[in-house]
Design a binder for these strands. Structure first.
Lengths: 407, 407
DNA sequence: ATTTTTTTCTCGACAGTCGAGAAATTTAGT
DNA sequence: ACTAAATTTCTCGACTGTCGAGAAAAAAAT
């Protein structure tokens, strides 16, 4: 359904646009903002005056004048305009980070996760405590925290911050909105981890290639398998999604997966699956919950020395990934694939299988092999993705609520 | 990348909005347009005055006054504002339809397709001739034809009107833009046939359910297998895509498909595949190009009488479809599935396989079976989809080009 | 001290939407 | 026949927004 436009909406959109270029390029002068946005100088004056009055941006101290002419006045976000807490949930720990409005890291700590089966209730309590702790360690008032951005592996509701399925809690759903609402008035968002990786890579790509960038998929290899897809959307910047790739059907009636279904991709390509296959354990054995990476390193070493069964295990994993990717490409357009996660260290062993699996499909035969690149530093990408998304959400909210009321 | 807004853009969007409600609801009075769009009465006056001056809409003769008060003046599109030619390419014929700006069918004829292997070049010549013929039969001047909307089965470039792969011509690509540019100045668009079905169903659904509508997939069963997905997008109405579903990998190293690859879904669920399977022909036999539907009806009859091998062929087809749909659902959100096409007459035989194939995956086990409905009248849906998309493209173009220049 | 250069700010013009109320035109009531 | 009520359409002034041109500011070069 189309929806009506108004002049006020124009100002809102342009204000968000100004904030977004400020975010992308750091502190900028009046004229630079005008160049980047395409808006006229007069409009920039009006918008920045409003934003300054609303205490969202500030004029920075005049820098060393470089060149003649009237010196530039740089505009930048006010760091204390608001704060963001990033919560990264991984299989063995939860990381809490406090970030200011300019994207600068203020405080961070990790908390080990207890592996007892007490489950979701206890975990939720730990997260509540962790959040209050990071707030307490800073001297920031709670109202100044505008957003709590959470990420986890698993399946996430696309509109509400509800964890639908995760490798750790299974189908024990967690609704972070209702969990955190008693303590916090901040907005809460939840994203799949690999989606954030894709978003971060997409943002980098867009800076590098500009308008040439179309789309990109990030595949995260580890205990579980994640996929994020990002494509450039019409008006609203990038569009991003995190399909349930790890549990897409690879082969009907295939190996048993942690999720209880048979034949998921993860049941062939997850760490536990490679282990199971290398030890020639029957495929319907209930898989181990956690696999020490050292164990997998050993198998990889044997495979590299020519041990047939170990090499075969990685090849099977690659095939499952390749088939799955080909199916994904059948349903989307051709796009480059970035491979991340701890599993990248075995990519030499996986590659052949991946390429063979891809090559078995019509799309790949027709359009050719997609570009595949291995990207390390998944941790950094996840955090980058958080900042990317969270801060632009804050920009949006701030313009919607803040500017009009502050007059 | 975000992009700047301006007041002129506001007017453009609102003009398109007015035209779109006029299209959805037929001739409307001033006040009704105001109600539907949410725009104020004054704005409607301004916009409709512009559109009338630009000869895009007109005041209709005052109808029988119903109720007291000043009688309404209905506004409607001017039929002669522009024309649209719809070209529907199917495996055995090409249908040409001439439609006026209000969506009313003016002329239509079918042309049989020669099945000789002379291929794309000859086909293209036939289409050029067909288009000139339908123009000639009417007394409309060529400049008045604003858009030529073409549909075919197969894979289509998402931005340009290029047929990348089709069941008939294989990888002999056809670029309709360059083919028709010499004869026509009209814009040319090309869509996958099942995408149009999905678009038409989506439009109906949106009218029925309003804001509750989220997304929907249309699966077309026939000689080949098509899939269209429609979901409600942010500003720009509906977002629609036609994945290469028929040639998504069903089973590695599986049956040989018409496309030359092994293991496509179509190689199990296309009409020729069901025939092949029912006659227990080896799966690597090069499949027949065209299968008379009567032949398949016979097999279906045998299957319904309990003939094992025939029933098994349909079941296998259903399994391939079900597995494929489950994979699609793993990559998207849960959505209802509408089944169309000539294959719906066998759905009683396919159903069990489809449901079993769906049930083998994690998503379906977790979220439950998606709603599946059988929808007849694929022909009508295709044409509806054409009108839907084509006329809204015309609205857009007309506002962009027509209104500002006419003053 | 003056000119040049560069940046920022300001003013008037123009486009768009909105609310209020005037104008138009019919039905209902007396 | 006349008036009141109802309903729709149109118009006017207020408000918000963007833009271009040029004034004002401020430093370097001459």
């Amino acid at each position: 359904m189309l929806t009506k436009s108004s002049t006020e909406l124009v100002r809102q959109r342009n204000s968000v646009l100004v904030l977004s270029v400020l975010r992308r390029h750091g502190a900028l002068a009046h004229t630079e903002i005008s160049d980047f946005t395409g808006l006229s100088s007069a409009t920039i004056s009006a918008i920045t005056a409003d934003l300054e009055k609303a205490q969202i941006i500030e004029k920075s101290e005049h820098q060393a004048a470089s060149g003649r002419g009237r010196p530039r006045v740089l505009l930048r976000q006010r760091r204390d305009c608001g704060y963001l807490i990033v919560v990264i949930i991984s299989s063995d720990a939860v990381q809490y980070s406090l970030v200011d409005y300019a994207g600068k890291l203020i405080d961070r700590f990790n908390e080990e996760r207890s592996h007892d089966p007490s489950g979701a209730a206890r975990f939720v309590a730990a997260v509540r405590a962790g959040l209050l702790r990071i707030l307490d360690r800073s001297k920031i008032s709670q109202e100044k925290v505008l957003l709590i951005s959470i990420s986890s592996k698993g399946l996430v509701n696309s509109t509400e911050p509800v964890l639908l399925w995760s490798p750790i809690f299974g189908s024990d759903q967690i609704d972070f909105e209702s969990v955190l609402r008693p303590d916090w008035q901040a907005k809460v968002i939840l994203d799949n981890e690999t989606l954030l990786v894709a978003a971060a890579l997409g943002a980098r790509e867009e800076i590098a290639k500009g308008a040439d960038f179309r789309s990109l998929a990030a595949l995260s290899l580890g205990h579980s398998i994640g996929l994020g897809i990002v494509r450039r959307g019409g008006q609203t910047g990038q569009e991003v999604s995190a399909p349930n790739f790890g549990h897409m059907l690879h082969m009907a009636n295939g190996g048993l997966c942690r999720c209880g279904t048979r034949g998921c991709i993860e049941a062939y390509a997850g760490f536990y699956a490679i282990l199971r296959s290398a030890f020639e354990v029957p495929l319907d054995t209930i898989p181990a919950k956690f696999v020490p990476v050292a164990e997998l390193d050993k198998i990889a070493a044997k495979a590299r020395q020519g041990h047939r069964v170990s090499a075969f295990a990685f090849r099977q994993a690659g095939l499952a990934l390749g088939n799955g990717l080909s199916r994904m490409l059948s349903l989307t357009e051709r796009m480059p694939i970035a491979i991340t996660g701890p599993g990248t260290r075995y990519y030499d062993l996986l590659r052949q299988g991946v390429e063979e699996g891809l090559g078995q499909s019509h799309v790949v035969r027709m359009e050719g092999m997609p570009e595949i690149r291995v990207v390390a530093d998944e941790q950094i990408l996840v955090f980058d993705g958080h900042l990317n998304r969270a801060l632009s959400v804050i920009d949006q909210d701030i313009v919607l609520s803040g500017v009009q009321s502050a007059e």
